[in-house]
Amino acid sequence: MNIFRLCGDMSHLAAIIILLLKMWKTRSVAGISGKSQILFATVFTARYLDLFTSFISIYNTCMKVFFIGTVYFTIYLIYMKFKATYDSNHDSFRVEFLIVPVGGLAFLVNHEFAPLEIIWTFSIYLESVAILPQLFMISKTGEAETITSHYLFALGSYRALYLCNWIYRYYAEGFFDLIAVVAGVVQTILYCDFFYLYITKVMKGKKISLPA
């Protein structure tokens, strides 16, 4: 554990809590992509199957259980409890265009051709693009609530901080995971446009609204 990794994890945790608070306080899931949340649920479920096979630390186990639990609760809020506020018309990204290529790639490019490892690889690749339905939804509606922007900023920062963690770990421990690093770079690049809008608008007190 190093400071970048810890900050990354805390940023990820903050993102999830911000999203839950937004939904709970406003009793609304408006502007939130249910499809991205389903993809994140798939990511966590696939990656954390190792809860049953290997123990890393109490911290690691608690975070995994929290991430899995909260993402399914988020899906419950979107598709059941606050269903009336869910904007399904604008959540029209075709997720099969992500799942199929990512699944194929996980089969072809992995560290070891073993079931659990392929599933782990799938989760790494899928996470890198799981935010696309959410970004697509914002580009379709042309706006994002400020609280949704905070959520996305925290979520994007998490993987950017992991990149710093991997640079640190490479020099400090000789640790280098090419699959995680490449996927992490892709994931972070996808947020760059949003980061720019966040810094130039949200930090100056304006909400994100895109020209029609």
């Binding site: 190792d50 992995n110 560290h111 490892e117 995971d177 090419l178 995680a180």
Partner: peptide, 10 residues
Amino acid sequence: GGTAQPHDEL
């Protein structure tokens, strides 16, 4: 580079 299971990150 990199190794298979177990993975120690989240």
